[in-house]
Amino acid sequence: MSTEVSLPAPTGLQAFADQARQYADQSRAANTRRAYASDVRAFANWCAARGEPSLPASPAAVLAYLIDHATTLKVVTLQRRLAAIREQHAAAGFDLETSSSAFRDTWRGIKRAHGQPAVKKRPLMTVDLRRAVATLPDTLPGRRDRALILVGFAAALRRSELAGLEVTRRDGAAWVEERPDGLVVHLARSKTDQSGEGAEIGVPYGSNMETCPVRSYRAWLNAAHLTEGPAFRPIDRHGHIGTEAVTDRAVARIVQRTVEAAALADGYSPEEARQLAAAYAGHSLRSGLATSAAANDAPGHAIQRQLRHKRFDTTSGYIRSGQLFKQNPAGMAGL
């Protein structure tokens, strides 16, 4: 969604006004901009079907839109659409009044009546990760998947970060540096670093050969003969390696496919294995590292540093999950 910026626009300043609009467009992540643009279009179509103006829209129309979709859209989606509508109005210089008690009370009622806890994907704990990667064959796709899963887990990467890694340094790209002590993942930009300051994440050698992210990554590069470009790439059924990077959705599919294979190896039926795998996603690597580390009493500040959280309370959610049974009062009650 384009963001309008008002600047004086005499002939000599027009170029700066155009640049200001371009920079304003970059103030949010690309995924957020696409989502907001889609949200605004959905609201405009709804208004057009009812003969209501969408810009500027009346608070009553916005509230009616929220009510009309309260049973068909999740509250988190409605919340994002409301934010998009507000931002569109502010960018266009319109004041959308949503602070009245009637609006606030109705919106609060919608959230209370239809709000649900977020459905979180299951963390891939270390013990489950070991079983999963053990099922991967010693083939080109198997080596790629092993390296992708282990590096993503050890570096606590988001799936988009993992998919975007490159073998060597390139301006504006995330890349992996090989050092004697392990790997260093250099991130150019991340979800919590929209200003692009970057971050360095250390990935040490694993204590087990089968689950060592450093050895697995190097084995994949050697097998694929990669010296530059994307680190993780598609491989077709003939064994040909692509030139582009895998997508972030491909990362999720690789995780799910590997978990499903492990479940089948453990004796699950095909249907049970599919259902179990569906509980995991790309984020399961990141949350799995945090939760597993917390279960093994890793310091909270170290977990926060690896996850690159700005706020510790975000990290503490993973720590609570990993330590549910650590010094649990119920376990000390003599039951």
Rank of each mutant, 00 (worst) to 15 (best):
F232I: 00
Y318R: 01
Q275F: 06
G239F: 00
A57I: 07
N45P: 13
V119Y: 06
F232A: 00
E228H: 15
A330P: 10
R122C: 11
P230I: 13
S269D: 05
R233D: 00
F94Q: 07
R286Q: 06
F325L: 14
E4F: 13
R179L: 11
Y318T: 05
R158Q: 01
A37N: 06
E272M: 05
T139S: 09
A250R: 14
S100K: 00
P123A: 07
A15H: 05
R80D: 08
L129W: 02
H89N: 02
E228N: 15
N31K: 09
T77F: 08
P180T: 06
Y23R: 09
T291W: 09
G317E: 12
S100E: 02
A330E: 08
A219T: 10
V133D: 03
L226E: 03
A24H: 01
N296V: 08
S287D: 04
R41E: 02
R215S: 02
R143G: 01
R41C: 10
L148D: 04
E197C: 11
R257H: 10
R305K: 14
E271N: 05
G142I: 01
T314C: 11
G334F: 06
W175S: 04
L7E: 07
E228Y: 15
I303K: 03
P10V: 15
L307R: 07
A48Q: 04
I241D: 01
R108N: 07
V184Q: 07
G164N: 05
N296G: 09
A90I: 08
Q88K: 14
E52H: 14
S216G: 03
R286F: 08
P117H: 08
Q327Y: 12
I235M: 02
H225C: 13
